[in-house]
């Protein structure tokens, strides 16, 4: 899932410092699971905002609502009534949500979170990046360990030779992805598959090809 974390309350307040009425929209999707944008965090942020602004002698009225998701038009349309007389909208969703709201409403929409990475929870309260969204997955070649995102240099024919005791040269807390790949393939008895030299990666499938679309004719309605 998408992992995101809250910006500082001061920073968020600054974005809407001139607004009298603000809508805070939470998202019950990924950001609830990673504990940063669910209904609980939305109402906490609203309370904090109200208290700050009241202390500054410039009180603000807040409306709070948590959408099921902010990345589907229908759920965003459902917010029309909620945000209609708000001067600004603070979205507690990932970057996608913020942009959907911006697309939908001609109001000042600001992000409350910084969207960090795609990953999963290691232990409750700790999340780790696992996928770099390169659009051309090579995991079948490396025993299920992604060199693009977990090797600092994203090289395809590693290791680069800088690793020590299985740790990456950039930091002794970061595992060398290729050490992990080597160990994994060895335990699976597929070391020979690693011998093949990988050609340079076709980055057009990734970000470098500009923003991407995914189309499924078979399921399109109407």
């Amino acid at each position: 899932m998408i992992i995101a974390q809250q910006k500082q309350i001061k920073e968020i307040a600054a974005m809407v410092s001139d607004c009298k009425k603000v809508a805070l929209i939470g998202c019950a999707g990924c950001v609830t699971v990673c504990l940063s944008g669910g209904e609980k965090e939305t109402e906490i942020m609203a309370a904090a905002l109200r208290i700050m602004r009241k202390l500054e002698g410039n009180p603000v009225e807040t409306i709070t609502f948590t959408a099921t998701r902010q990345c589907d038009p229908e759920y965003v349309e459902a917010l029309d009534g909620v945000v209609k007389d708000a001067d600004a909208i603070i979205s507690l969703a990932c970057g996608v949500g913020v942009q959907y709201l911006a697309e939908r409403f001609d109001k000042w929409v600001v992000p409350a979170l910084d969207t960090n990475f795609i990953g999963g929870s290691k232990v409750h309260g700790v999340w780790e990046e696992k996928c770099g969204m390169c659009g051309d997955c090579v995991l079948h070649k490396t025993g299920g360990i992604c060199p693009i995102i977990r090797c600092s240099k994203s090289i395809l024919n590693g290791p680069c030779g800088g690793s020590q005791y299985g740790k990456c040269e950039i930091s002794k807390d970061v595992d060398c992805a290729w050490q992990l790949i080597y160990d994994r393939m060895k335990s699976l008895g597929k070391l020979d598959k690693l011998m093949a030299i990988q050609p340079p990666k076709d980055w057009t499938k990734s970000r470098d090809g500009g923003p991407r679309r995914a189309v499924r004719e078979d399921v399109m309605i109407g």
């Binding site: 699971v33 504990l35 669910g38 209904e39």
Partner: peptide, 12 residues
Amino acid sequence: DKCAACLTCVRL
């Protein structure tokens, strides 16, 4: 309907 199945309660 409000539950995101985030497992917080199960773990806790």
